[in-house]
Amino acid sequence: MLDQNMKILVVDDFSTMRRIIKNILKELGYTNVDEADDGSTGLEKLKGGNFDFVVTDWNMPNMPGIDLLKAIRSDGDLKKLPVLMVTAEAAKENIVEAVEAGVSNYIVKPFTAAALKERIDLIIEKYK
């Protein structure tokens, strides 16, 4: 169910980044948002959490975003979950790795609210 009521998980080790993304999502009309501070906590929340969408950073302690993405794609229940990566890692090899791991879209920090909206809309369109 990818619409304004979808349940979104924001995964980032910086509390400020989680706050930024949550506020922008709220302004875009997405109010059902939960958060996690690293990949492993995020994965635990995703299992059985009935989430519809994941926004994750790349560089995080314990489990980086790319490993979270791979774990999602290899989990029978989670593998179809849309994953948007929001990261400072802008090198081509990072983007290639993320795409190969099955990322749904990719935003480089710093980003604008409009850029976030555009990527979310693209993902929703793709998953319709």
């Binding site: 980032d12 930024i20 922008i24 302004e27 920090k109 710093p110 980003f111 609210a113 409009a114």
Partner: peptide
């Protein structure tokens, strides 16, 4: 004004980027 505020929000990500 709301659009500008949201962009200001996004720009506070300097903390995350500077930290990294």
């Amino acid at each position: 004004m709301k659009t500008i505020m949201m962009d200001m929000f996004a720009n506070t990500s300097f903390h995350d980027l500077s930290g990294q």
